[in-house]
Simulated assay, not measured.
Amino acid sequence: MDLGLSGKKALVLGASRGLGAATAQALAAEGVTVFAAARNISALTQSEGIKPIQVDLADKQSIAALIDTIQAEGGVDILVNNGGGPKAGPAQGQPAGAWTGAFEVMALPFFAITDALIGGMIEKGWGRILTIGSSGIVQPIPNLGLSNGIRGAIAGWSKTLANEVAPHGITVNMVIPGRVATDRLQELDSGRAERTGASLEDVQAASRAEIPVGRYGRPDEFGAVVAFLASQQASYITGSIIRVDGGLIKGL
């Protein structure tokens, strides 16, 4: 299927590894020029159509520089918001600074970058804004209190924005992974093994047993879904949260 994306431009945040890298590669394979933004651009996979650009989402000046660079390039047609999560821990007992710090790093950069670039999409009458979230949005993950809370706020923003810009030919969606084999999942599995005293292999086997398809997802499977949501064919999908989870999430 031709997704109709050849010649489009995209900005993918957090593109040096995991889901962000898989998304950047999937879009580039469709003929999209991808500005792959990451704090460590040396870790970016070099391939045709991918242009590394450095950004630190914890640094306001770095974010402003990124916005200036993208606007100087004429803006983008596709924006993929993606970033790392905070440290694991319960919701109970978190100091106020932990909540504000997580919000400033996880949510505010997405809001600022989107606000700065969406005007160009409105002028063109076409755009795609996609935010990579977490299954904790719809089924909170134990011991990820900060992530569940902040990502839930981002989901509310995404849905609100979708309603505002739909008349301009812009779709706004979230994509949430289940257990996809990334460095982040490895870190979470290792943390669970350390807390419980079980081996990493046993933790992973128990985790896979909870997934109806019986395995962890592949990053490229996730990237393919994001690429479709960015496509011409997905023009009637907006305000949605799409799960790529192998059936893991039990809620309707």
Rank of each mutant, 00 (worst) to 15 (best):
D2K: 13
D2R: 14
L3A: 01
G4E: 02
L5K: 07
G7K: 14
A10W: 00
L11I: 00
L11A: 00
L11F: 01
G14D: 14
S16K: 11
R17C: 05
R17N: 07
L19P: 02
G20S: 01
G20Q: 09
T23D: 00
T23M: 01
A24W: 03
Q25A: 13
A26C: 03
A29E: 05
E30M: 09
G31T: 04
T33L: 15
V34G: 04
F35Q: 00
N40H: 13
S42F: 00
A43C: 07
A43W: 00
Q46K: 15
I50V: 14
V55W: 01
D56K: 11
K60A: 15
K60P: 06
K60S: 11
S62P: 04
S62W: 06
S62M: 03
S62K: 03
I63W: 00
A64V: 09
L66V: 05
L66W: 07
I67G: 04
D68M: 03
A72K: 14
G74N: 08
G74H: 09
G75F: 03
I78H: 01
N81C: 13
N81G: 01
N81M: 11
P86Y: 10
G89T: 04
G89D: 02
Q94R: 08
A96N: 10
G97C: 04
A98F: 01
W99E: 07
T100F: 10
A102L: 03
A102N: 06
F103P: 00
V105F: 12
M106R: 08
A107C: 05
A107H: 09
P109N: 12
F111H: 09
I113T: 02
I122S: 11
E123Q: 15
G127L: 04
G127E: 02
R128L: 08
T131D: 10
S134K: 12
G136L: 02
V138Y: 01
Q139D: 13
P140H: 00
I141G: 00
N143F: 13
G145R: 00
I150S: 08
W157G: 12
S158E: 12
T160I: 05
L161D: 05
A162T: 11
A162Y: 05
A162W: 06
P167K: 06
P167Y: 04
I170R: 00
V172A: 11
N173V: 15
V175L: 14
I176M: 09
I176Y: 06
P177G: 02
P177Q: 01
R179C: 10
R184G: 03
E187W: 07
E187V: 15
E187S: 14
D189H: 10
S190V: 08
S190I: 08
S190G: 11
T196K: 07
G197M: 12
A198P: 02
E201H: 05
D202A: 14
Q204C: 10
Q204E: 15
A206T: 09
S207M: 10
R208M: 15
R208G: 10
I211P: 06
V213D: 07
V213P: 07
Y216N: 10
G217R: 04
R218D: 13
R218W: 12
G223I: 02
G223R: 08
V226Y: 08
A227R: 01
F228E: 09
L229Y: 09
Q232S: 05
S235A: 14
Y236M: 12
Y236I: 05
Y236L: 13
I237P: 07
S240F: 07
I242W: 11
L248M: 13
K250R: 12
K250W: 01
K250C: 03
